[in-house]
Design a binder for these strands. Structure first.
Lengths: 161, 161
DNA sequence: TATTGTTATACTCTATAACTATA
DNA sequence: TATAGTTATAGAGTATAACAATA
């Protein structure tokens, strides 16, 4: 009965001499490796965007605004799960760099219509190229594995709640 | 030429009326969905461990110590990529709750030999059950998809750097 | 009364420098 | 001189409450 587990095939060996201690089966858990993968991808992305002075969040905000100009801050925040107070700072910085402008929102003087400036468009175009190279590195890491299938698996997990 | 991309099949539609703004193709990126999946899994894990007063990191530390009793703090930190100063606080708390003890390390009075107390063993056993249920929820989200294959894909991405 | 953006603030996680006691 | 643990601290990232202007 000691082997009756639902699915996991765990590493049971605790080799005290191994490089780094045994992980107690953690390394066979989807959640644990998921975290490792996410950290690795994020590190690569951060470096890819650094030359443009953009963090991943900044980049995603620019992408969303480009996809739907005239968006309100709230809509951007909802799309990316960024709390409204935190988005204020992000937009402040992007606006301060002349990449985004807070335009007048037609028919609602409480909110702004966000749009990229020409400089914003230009920088985003360059950042997109770097991001594509980053995405290619992720895809390359998958080797012969089906990228669409991995995407589907991750989507299912993301919707798990 | 506008469609010549390495691999991604992007959503090109920017529907301003959709629930949440268009993501500018972000939702077709492995890295982005990877983050969503990681957040979802982490939230589920946090809730699964909450009844035991353990955060995911605490749980992983207990697992590593159980797998290899006598481990030094540094070894635990290396195994889990936790900075030494940060691990001090974690062990302090676990020791304060009587779950872990800092024993004498044979032949080196600078370091401690970490071990679980009987209470630690008991709590970890319970937490492991909750963790297994959590892991089952993750697996269930994958439906008919091959769990080992997903694990392999994530491992490859994690080693991408 | 509800909503948008804002301010202030706090909490967690993570990272670094410097100290101590041992080796 | 180097290492294990510690202390203090700083920086992200994220979260909530409350306010002003507007709806």
């Amino acid at each position: 009965m000691s082997k009756s587990r639902t699915s996991a095939a765990r590493a049971e060996v605790a080799d005290i001499d191994s490089p780094g201690a045994a992980l107690g089966g953690l390394d066979a858990q989807v959640g644990f490796v998921l975290r490792l993968a996410q950290v690795a991808v994020f590190k690569d992305l951060i470096e890819a965007l650094r030359p443009f002075g953009l963090r991943p969040t900044d980049f995603s905000v620019l992408l969303v605004i480009e996809a739907t100009p005239g968006l309100k801050q709230q809509a951007v925040g909802e799309a990316l799960s960024i709390q409204r107070p935190n988005l204020v700072t992000i937009i402040d910085q992007l606006e301060g760099r002349g990449l985004v402008k807070r335009g007048a929102a037609p028919g609602d003087r409480r909110s702004y219509a966000l749009a990229l400036t020409p400089d914003g468009e230009k920088l985003l175009a360059q950042a997109k190229t770097a991001h594509m190279e980053h995405a290619d590195r992720v895809t390359a890491a998958l080797g012969d594995m089906d990228r669409q299938m991995v995407l589907e698996a991750l989507s299912r997990i993301a919707r798990m709640a």
